[in-house]
Design a protein around this nucleic acid. Structure first.
Length: 288
DNA sequence: ACTCGACCTGAAAT
DNA sequence: AATTTCAGGTCGA
């Protein structure tokens, strides 16, 4: 829950309050037991799906443990999984998340949830569900701007309207394979305004469970050379690409493809470990 | 097809 | 304490 892939949950005394499949829940872990409470109906299957408990994590770790960097990261963050959130919610979240730090993202999502989310109460804790796409679409640019969204407000408004217009959007993306879905979301008639390669990768990984996705943000970019160093062919992918600080489209895709070559269809899991390791490694300093 | 500056805002670094 | 840099990037010229 604290891995940076999910926003909008409330943590009180190591208990998490939030919405799982539109149902308000309280979740906590005791040793190897996951305890989920709700005052509404919730299927066990939904919980298993949300936490991806059917992903064979031992096998995945084995496959992506390609060097000491990954080995150490896997040890350090053992237990983390790629969640399966509501796709629409991830679209909203990761449009808001671009070019912001995590505390700022939490703040924006909190404000949006307060305005556009469902209210719930468990124990003495009141919390709000993820912002409703319909309510966002029916609001105004001016109203959205009150949440600290800045230039993301127009992205969110247009995308909310488009998603609402096309009821089958998620279903169509779900049926596509990873690379097809990536291009659909970022170009052509299914393109979402404000969704580039990075945000699309996050949506595909955390919302659609397309595990080949390898989102490259500033943190993954920083750790990439050390995390994958023995796999980077200096002739093919040398200074020309990885030495430069900024990521263009071509370089983004190339780096993702290299990762997919190494980690296969579990690149997304590798990304999460590398992301977490990088945030720990580079926190409090911009040294590389 | 590629490069490059503009862009909102607030947290964190200097 | 004030100022600058930076953040889970994308758009349009």
């Amino acid at each position: 829950m604290g891995s940076g892939q999910v926003f909008g949950w409330t943590s009180v005394d190591k208990r998490w309050y939030g919405f799982l499949n539109n149902v308000p829940v309280r979740i906590y872990q005791e040793d190897d037991k996951l305890i989920v409470y709700s005052n509404k109906e919730l299927e066990e299957e939904d919980i298993i799906n949300f936490f991806s408990l059917n992903d064979d994590i031992e096998m995945i770790n084995e496959k992506i443990m390609v060097n000491d960097f990954l080995k150490k990261a896997i040890q350090l963050y053992s237990g983390v999984r790629i969640l399966q959130q509501n796709p629409i919610d991830t679209i909203v979240e990761f449009i808001c998340a671009q070019n912001k730090n995590i505390p700022a993202i939490e703040k924006i999502i909190e404000k949006l949830s307060l305005k556009y989310g469902e209210r719930a109460k468990i124990d003495e804790t009141t919390f709000f569900g993820p912002p409703n796409i319909e309510k966002i679409a029916n609001s105004s640019l001016k109203e959205l701007l009150e949440n600290g969204l800045g230039y993301r407000a127009k992205y969110l408004l247009f995308t909310a309207k488009k998603i609402l217009e096309d009821k089958m959007y998620s279903d169509r993306i779900r049926k596509m394979d990873y690379i097809e879905a990536l291009h659909a979301m970022t170009s052509g008639n299914m393109k979402l305004y404000g969704v580039g390669l990075k945000v699309a990768d996050c949506i595909l990984l955390y919302g659609f469970h397309k595990l080949e996705a390898f989102p490259i943000d500033v943190w993954v970019l920083k750790a990439y050379p050390s995390a994958l160093k023995e796999f980077i062919d200096e002739n093919l992918y040398g200074e020309k690409y990885f030495g430069r600080p900024k990521l263009d489209k071509k370089k983004y895709l190339l780096m993702g493809n290299v990762a997919r070559k190494i980690f296969g269809k579990y690149a997304g899991y590798a990304q999460l470990y590398i992301y977490m390791a990088s945030r720990n490694l580079f926190k409090g300093s911009k040294k590389i």
